[in-house]
């Protein structure tokens, strides 16, 4: 599943990031925000009344807004519910 498809408030972790789908600057910024394989991630908010806006996700202790097109480069695996 891709990060932009992850339902709100579902715990997941990043399985893979397609760095080639991102520009150098975008890839660096994502790494600086703490995105990386194996990192836990959750989608908390979606902006969307005026079309498909960016999403706000929780990575580590940060809340980060990214566009859905960038989120589509990030593959996530949902964690099994207890």
């Amino acid at each position: 599943m891709r990060l932009d498809q992850l339902p709100l408030r579902e715990r997941a972790h990043i399985a893979d990031i397609d760095w080639t789908a991102l520009s150098d600057a975008e890839a660096r910024r994502l790494r600086e925000f703490g995105f990386g394989e194996g990192v836990a991630v959750e989608v908390w908010h979606r902006s969307g009344l005026l079309g498909r806006g960016p999403i706000a996700c929780r990575v580590g202790r940060m809340t980060v807004a990214i566009r859905r097109s960038n989120a589509a480069a990030i593959s996530v695996v949902q964690q099994d519910r207890p």
Binding site: S23, A25, T63, R67
Partner: peptide
């Protein structure tokens, strides 16, 4: 220019 995306810490 490249359509640099929107990435921002909240």
């Amino acid at each position: 220019g490249a359509p640099s995306g929107f990435m921002m810490e909240l």
